[in-house]
């Protein structure tokens, strides 16, 4: 890949996370470079979602460093940074078990993503002067535009809870994109999707990466999607990264095969 040499937008160094006596993550090193699609895979309970929660500020890691380089080129250490500030910095995530705002419309869900990029306050809201109205209209338009990108413009005024499962997943991605991220964190975006939907999702991720110039870090169990979509893959097991490399390298790594298929104990 040509982008292989570009700068890291997210660099995690020796990160560990303890919950009391339980070591959920131990010495994790991970890097996402500009424009890359990186996948994080591993058996259930390997610590993938914990990793996401650490880098998005939901948990504060016990040890290690998380460095994020925003679009302005400045690098920030984001250990334990508040979740909303991480998002404002430009790292937007989706959730493994969809977390939309169910009794808001699809359009409004995306508009929420625009919150941190707009600044209308209480008085602006009450007076609703020309500046506020312009900003509001801009929020509506860009949000609608994003809905078009993920193919949901037809259901813009539907309640999010009324959307079919696949559409909800795509809506979450649109909502994340609305925050203008440099890094999109997708937690099992294809979970519960049929092969056709997964294929469409894959194409959408590729398109989004080009159009919005974002890097993508995704957790996924669908190997077909992971192998065909990602530039590099990290494999986790029991809170450790056990292997890193291109899809071809990973699929040939005996350690990975052992983690997924189990070890033969007796011959």
């Amino acid at each position: 890949m040509s982008e292989m040499n570009s700068a890291a937008v997210l660099a995690v160094r020796n990160m560990s996370m303890n919950f009391g006596g339980l070591r959920a993550l131990s010495d994790v090193d991970l890097e996402v470079r500009a424009g890359e699609v990186v996948a994080l895979i591993g058996p259930n309970g390997a610590g993938k979602t914990t990793f996401f929660n650490c880098i998005t500020g939901i948990y504060t890691p016990t040890e290690g460093e998380i460095l994020a380089t925003a679009r302005d080129g400045k690098t920030h250490r984001i250990n334990g940074m508040r979740t909303n500030l991480v998002c404002e910095l430009g790292m937007a995530r989706t959730f493994q078990n969809i977390r939309l705002f169910p009794s808001m419309t699809a359009l409004e869900n995306v508009m929420i993503g625009r919150h941190c990029r707009t600044k209308e306050g209480i008085f602006g809201a009450i007076v609703r002067g020309p500046g506020t109205r312009r900003e509001e209209q801009h929020v509506v338009d860009t949000s609608y535009h994003l809905l078009q990108k993920v193919g949901l413009e037809q259901v813009a005024d539907e309640y999010a809870s009324n959307l079919p499962y696949g559409a909800q997943r795509r809506l979450e991605i649109a909502r994340a994109l609305a925050t203008e991220p440099f890094l999109l964190l997708l937690d099992e975006p294809a979970a519960g999707m049929n092969p056709q939907e997964t294929l469409e999702l894959k194409e959408m991720v590729i398109q989004i990466r080009h159009e919005f110039a974002v890097s993508v870090l995704l957790i996924e169990h669908d190997m077909k999607m992971v192998m065909s979509l990602s530039d590099r893959i990290y494999v986790m097991e029991y809170g450790r990264v056990i292997s890193t490399g291109t899809p071809a390298e990973i699929s040939a790594d005996p350690q990975v095969i052992r983690a997924y298929l189990g070890e033969e104990t007796d011959a």
């Binding site: 998005t56 979740t83 909303n84 998002c87 977390r99 705002f101 808001m104 919150h115 929020v139």
Partner: peptide, 23 residues
Amino acid sequence: SRIGRAWLALREDEIACQAMGID
């Protein structure tokens, strides 16, 4: 308004609300 939507989001899902950049 923007504020009102943030309140609704807060009511609907606090974690997602914060993860979407709302203080």
